[in-house]
Amino acid sequence: MIFETTPSQTVGPYFAIGLPFDVGPFVVPEGTPGAIHLTGTIYDGAGVPIPDFLLETWQADPDGNFADVHDRGGPSQIDGFRGFARYGLEDGDGTYDILTLKPGPVAGLNGQMQAPHIAVSVFARGMLHRSVTRIYFADETEANASDPALSRVPAERRSTLLAEPVDGGYRFDIRFQGPDETVFFAI
């Protein structure tokens, strides 16, 4: 017998009571060699930053290994690598800042390599279901060119998935609507 999933509901404006935790923004502990800041702003359809968003990320380490129990190229050998970040504030301003390591290429289930990427979920008041996107890296031109997920995205929209190098790490903004609307995925 197949059951149906429990439907999604909005995270609402008050998730900060329960969901954020102290080390949530840290995919790796402070002081981890090679750690970078991934920062950005999340904009609504009027181009206004969304203060009450909750962002979560999931990624492989620089060797392409994940920090969990699954037997898929992993588990990560890097001390303290959690692979996961959660960022959301009671009094947010629309920006996020997580400390992480740049992921390496990840072997797919069929052996086809994926370019370095980070899976992202965005939740907020006014969102009845999470929005899922992926962060790729603008300085990985060659890997990006053969990435099987990016290749499904119309060429003119691919740039919305690229994090740009900045001092100390990368910047990746998310736009819900407008001419530069970020690409979101159905998974």
Partner: peptide, 25 residues
């Protein structure tokens, strides 16, 4: 509040990869 907080473009179908079938513990 959903009006300005939803993607207007259609979602792009992503075949599931190792990234989606793993997760944090």
């Amino acid at each position: 509040s959903t009006a300005l907080r939803h993607p207007k473009q259609p979602l792009i179908y992503l075949p599931q990869t190792v990234t989606e079938i793993t997760g944090p513990q």
